[in-house]
Design a protein around this nucleic acid. Structure first.
Lengths: 102, 102
DNA sequence: CCATCAGTTAATCAGTTGATTAACTATTTA
DNA sequence: TAAATAGTTAATCAACTGATTAACTGATGG
């Protein structure tokens, strides 16, 4: 949980997640989309991976990365939903059932 | 956006938001719930305020803080929903209306 | 008016983050 | 096997975070 929010504190890392949301990419393909050095990118990818937000798969010479949307759903999304009753149509039903006569 | 995610990178600040989700609290009431010094708390509150996640209101000797759930909804929640199609019942309806005959 | 209480600001400091270059590992290909 | 390509690790460094204490501002109340 902590690692997830720390990972998301970087705009570059959030951008990486947005790219991966389109489909898997190799480290090199991600690197093309940014200005910083390969080691810098490697560090960002490690942080995202350790937060459980992406997975890594080595295929031959390349390393491909994929988004893990369930991880986001179970951490950030769920956390935000807890503090955003305004955006929570599902949970409202649950509440209504718990307090049937107000 | 960036400031919001940076603000949320701290577990202490997320905890402050959780407390404020129960209702408004003065700085002192928040301080009681933590171990660190007043200036440290003051800094955390300033960061949350500058991110637009809380508002401040001075009443007499006290400063009361309140959560701004809409801010969370429009930043974190919306951002996460974009990457979590698995958890997006609202947007599905919007899409369905846009493409009525698929 | 003076003491106290609530909170912020300033100065300082240790630890972390995020970047770089250089060197390394591992895979492909000639 | 040697060269090239893809990526990581190591060493280093500047900049930022997050904490502390001391000093300040502003409201309350004897």
């Amino acid at each position: 949980m902590n690692k997830v929010f720390e990972a998301l504190a970087s705009a570059a890392r959030r951008k990486i997640l947005a790219y991966l949301n389109q489909g898997e990419l190799s480290a090199g393909e991600i690197a093309e989309r940014f200005d910083f050095s390969k080691p810098a990118l490697s560090a960002h990818l490690r942080i995202l991976e350790e937060a459980g937000l992406i997975t890594r798969e080595k295929r031959g010479q390349f390393v491909f990365f994929r988004l893990v949307p369930e991880r986001l759903a179970n951490t950030v999304f769920a956390w935000a939903a807890e503090l955003c009753p305004v955006a929570r149509p599902l949970k409202r039903e649950v509440r209504a059932r718990r307090k049937p006569a107000g």
